[in-house]
Computed example of a mutant assay.
Amino acid sequence: MPKDDFLQAAHDPRDPNPWLAMYLDQSTPLPDHVKRAWLSELASPSRQYLLPFVRPLARLCMILIQILKVILPKHWSASKMLHRILVWGLKGFVSPEANWLILRHFHLGAQIIEFIERNAPVSVPLSSLRPLTIDDLTDELFLKHDLNLFNFIIRLNQALRNEDKTLEAVANIDFSMIGEPPLALTSMPQGRSNWIDVQTAIEIFTPVYQLFLTDNDFWRAANSLQMDETMGVYVATLLNTPQHLLLLNNKHPLVPLSTLHAGHRLVLHGLSTEMLHCLLSQMKHAQT
């Protein structure tokens, strides 16, 4: 039976399906095809039965790895090996929906950053990451994704300060960079072993990420999740729509949280990015 069978099942008022309710609800901005993939992941057996065991074990591993880091050389890391391991795991064990959502995230993040830069009163260099296949991630794209975010925030605000300017509402917004990524769900690995949902996969990969990076790289990656509110504020300022900040959960940027919760917060980060991109897509459609 497909994971999204809640879409075909008849509604029983005495036993309403929560996934169907979430799918039909329009209060959270998500395109139907993304929401269907997302809820299929939530309704999957791996999330229901595997995640409750994986999450505490992953957090225990993170504590042990933090102790191990005390005796390891401070700058020891193996980023290239890390990304080869992540790609092997994604291709071999992670569900098609999860892989599709992960690849989409790089494209959506690049588009949102370009949207802010294009509509800001200053111009800064961008480094876009738009992988088309899972193998493209081996070029250390997870690490570069975090670096891009911080580099963009630093460059943007340095330029604003140097030119004595601020972000402000723009009358004629440029939405030209906002669009559907050229990624097909059907092109993702579909083997019999590809069944682990996105949340469980992230919980498994987080301690692996911690082990193969320096403490500085891992803490920066975890703290980048707190920048969701920062990016949301930038977009809301340009659009003059503060109400779009209501669904942000990875805050406050000046109060970093423990890395033990990085896996769960990474899922929130992915969902926040999808919703923000959906809002921008809706506004682009309304403008045209």
Results as ranks from 00 to 15, higher is better:
W88G: 03
L211F: 15
W88N: 07
T28I: 09
N148F: 05
T166R: 07
L24V: 06
H277Y: 06
H261Q: 04
V34F: 15
V54R: 06
M275Q: 14
D217R: 12
K91F: 09
Q226F: 14
L167I: 05
L42Q: 11
V124H: 10
A110R: 06
S187I: 04
Y234I: 00
M22P: 00
K144Y: 10
E274R: 04
N216V: 06
P182T: 15
S128R: 11
F93A: 08
N250H: 07
V170T: 11
L279F: 12
P29T: 04
Q26G: 04
P18I: 05
I154S: 07
S258Y: 12
L213M: 10
W100T: 03
M81G: 07
D136H: 09
A236Y: 15
L57Q: 09
N240S: 11
I202R: 05
K74R: 12
L149F: 14
L160P: 00
M1A: 14
I67M: 10
D12T: 11
K91G: 04
I65Y: 13
K35H: 09
I85N: 08
M231T: 10
L30A: 11
Y234N: 11
P18D: 02
L183P: 01
Q111F: 10
I63R: 12
K69C: 04
D197I: 00
L126G: 05
A21I: 10
H83Q: 01
D32N: 13
S127E: 12
K165W: 10
V70D: 13
L108H: 15
Q66L: 05
S258R: 09
P73A: 02
P181C: 06
Q199S: 12
L276A: 00
D15C: 02
